[in-house]
């Protein structure tokens, strides 16, 4: 293994919780498997509390905070140890970090739990780059040259501040070249229930994003958010286009394996 697993000098075993998100659990499990695989190869012990379901965001953003609160409340007891809670999604991470404490503002006991989790919530690429100091060495072993575009979700950019982490992570993968695409900072049009309440506007946004990605000349694209990826990949499938996106963890794992992607 040619990765430098830990920040210099650290030898103790790192333990983390994984909050995998409901989208990954049912619709994009490979991303979750790859997150676990990458973390374990870097010497991190990953705990996946089996009772986890969803952060509550879909109801929360649609105007049903009580439903969101009940679902979020069911997660609060699952992360008792003081370990980081790794979330492979800027969007769900933002829900835990920014919105859970507010959701339980008038419930002192749960608020303490929510604030504790919020303080420990770390988005996957942030953890790799800033906590583990991850870097893949030995370009010869890490696969053929690859041009990828990076789609940073709006929540990753604004609620988690992890735009720089995604970029840094790609820089640390030898042979991987990150290409920019037009209107890169713009939303892909997913927006949870927005995509079904205003399907035409959502589709127009997704179409423009796909055009920009295609025009960038990338061979594939990555994102740290599976909501965006489902929106974009299923739109590409409907178009009959060959281009696909994958979770950034899957690319990291592939480069660790030395495969082309």
């Amino acid at each position: 293994m040619s990765a430098s697993p830990h920040a210099a000098g650290s030898t103790e075993t790192r333990q983390v919780y994984l909050f995998a998100t409901c989208v990954i659990d049912l619709f994009a499990p490979q991303a979750g498997v790859d997150v676990v695989e990458v973390l374990e190869r870097l010497g991190v012990t990953v705990h996946f509390p089996a009772a986890q379901t969803c952060c509550g965001q879909p109801a929360y953003t649609t105007g049903f905070p009580e439903e969101a609160r009940k679902v979020a409340a069911a997660q609060l007891d699952l992360f008792p140890e003081p370990w980081p809670v790794i979330v492979p999604s800027g969007s769900c991470g933002g829900m835990l970090k920014q919105h859970w404490p507010r959701l339980f503002a008038d419930d002192p006991a749960r608020r303490v739990q929510a604030e504790s989790i919020a303080a420990r919530t770390v988005e996957f690429t942030d953890y790799l780059v800033n906590t583990l100091g991850f870097r893949l060495d030995a370009p010869a072993a890490s696969g053929a040259p690859l041009r990828v575009a990076l789609h940073t979700s709006c929540s990753a950019r604004r609620e988690m501040g992890t735009l720089g982490c995604g970029r840094a992570l790609l820089e640390r993968l030898p042979g991987v070249e990150r290409v920019e695409h037009g209107h890169e900072a713009e939303c892909c049009g997913f927006g949870g229930t927005f995509s079904v309440k205003h399907p035409e506007i959502s589709a127009a946004m997704a179409a423009d994003k796909l055009d920009a990605l295609t025009a960038s000349g990338c061979e594939s694209f990555v994102s740290a958010d599976c909501g965006c990826l489902l929106n974009l990949n299923l739109s590409l499938e409907k178009r009959g286009a060959a281009l696909r996106g994958q979770h950034i963890a899957s690319l990291v794992r592939a480069r660790m394996d030395g495969a082309a992607s």
Binding site: D25, P199, E200, L234, S235
Partner: peptide, 17 residues
């Protein structure tokens, strides 16, 4: 509205858990 411009959303063959 989802499938107007996208392929259908389908559960994966096996869940992550």
């Amino acid at each position: 509205g989802w499938t107007a411009s996208r392929a259908a959303l389908k559960p994966a063959p096996r869940s992550l858990r």
